[in-house]
């Protein structure tokens, strides 16, 4: 984590990973825990569920699945761009 990645592929991967981690953190720890009370009170309800509560019990998990799909798609595209594709 300390040393600067020299390879362009590695740098692009790291940027993608950090971006996804930021989303991962904000949907789970952010919406579900740290700002949950504020969101429960102020954000629009999901159906009849308070927003923060819903994020903690359902929304975060749905976002996790989407995150992994996005990760697989973008990483495969990055690999292809840098010529690392393998036949499946």
């Amino acid at each position: 984590m300390k040393d600067a990645p020299s390879h362009p592929h590695r740098r692009a991967c790291l940027r993608l990973v950090l971006g996804l981690l930021a989303v991962w953190f904000s949907v789970s720890f952010g919406c579900g825990i740290l700002f949950r009370e504020w969101l429960d009170a102020n954000a629009p309800q999901i159906g009849s569920a308070p927003f923060g509560f819903w994020m903690a019990q359902q929304g975060a998990i749905i976002c996790f699945v989407i995150l992994l799909v996005v990760y697989a798609f973008l990483m495969n595209r990055l690999d292809a761009k840098h010529g690392y594709t393998e036949d499946n």
Partner: peptide
Amino acid sequence: YDASRFLMGWTGGFVLLTILMVP
């Protein structure tokens, strides 16, 4: 609500596992 720690903890771990470790 308190049980959300298990719901998020045991699924969110897979995000870390996938983007930081297993590949």
